[in-house]
Amino acid sequence: MSEAELAARSPPPQSAPAAPVVVARDLSIDFGSMVALSDVSLSFTHGDFVSLIGPSGCGKTTLLRAVADLVPPSRGSLMVNGMTPGDARRARSYGYVFQAPALYPWRSVERNVMLPLEIMGLPKAEQRRRAAHYLGLVGLGDFARKFPWQLSGGMQQRASIARALSFEPALLLMDEPFGALDEITRDGLNLHLHELWRRSGLTCVFVTHSIPEAVFLSTRIVVMSPRPGRVIEIIESDLPAERDLDMRESAEFLRVAHRVREALRAGHSYD
């Protein structure tokens, strides 16, 4: 755990061969007779920011939930940090950010961030220290004593990111975390998330159906298609590591976005 943490905290490896964080081999997942995910093979390495993009029903959320051991694989294999997803979950090796903030309304923002730390049995002082640190990191330092429903939607989602970071996992799984927010708030949060990732060296897996969002954030973009959910193409982004919002109008950004759009279209012409 601590070794993995150390590796994760170092800057994204450029030359050294990186250890795989998530490896899927011919992974399929069925819900009854419905095939949600079909023969997916991929591998994410330390420091990657991976976006899973595709239309509704392409299995991107299912893939993320499988990594989190929230749904069991039906066939094929899936390893997280070299363990089964279940062992990885029990080792508390990832933080998960849901589509909704899922903050507990009866806890203050600070105590929401402390929730996983309470469950993992950290000392009270350390819980407080970490809550203050990570709330500061997402720009909510002044809102610790507020209750979630007194915050805007964007702030709530930031609090839930602070909660996912608070126990310092090396892997952050995010399921359309900004899907319910307006575009302006979303831009701000994307920039915030990008800087967080840059500074921490986290491995992120991010589900979205927004092309600009995926291109802006990612080092790799996994394009998926529905019925049954499968991977169309994995696009390696050659954008510079340091990014800002203005970059979204640059030629290289638009070129990557175009490749994603072409891949999505290829997935659709299959129907």
Binding site: A68, D69, R90, R92, Y94, Y96, L115, E118, I119, M120
Partner: peptide, 26 residues
């Protein structure tokens, strides 16, 4: 709701913890 239970699962919280920290306060 189910994502609140999922959240507890991602922390691999015990049944007692789910009860004390989620079900009972809710």
């Amino acid at each position: 709701d189910s994502i609140q239970f999922d959240l507890m699962r991602t922390y691999s919280a015990s049944g007692q913890q789910v009860f004390a920290k989620l079900r009972l306060p809710a």
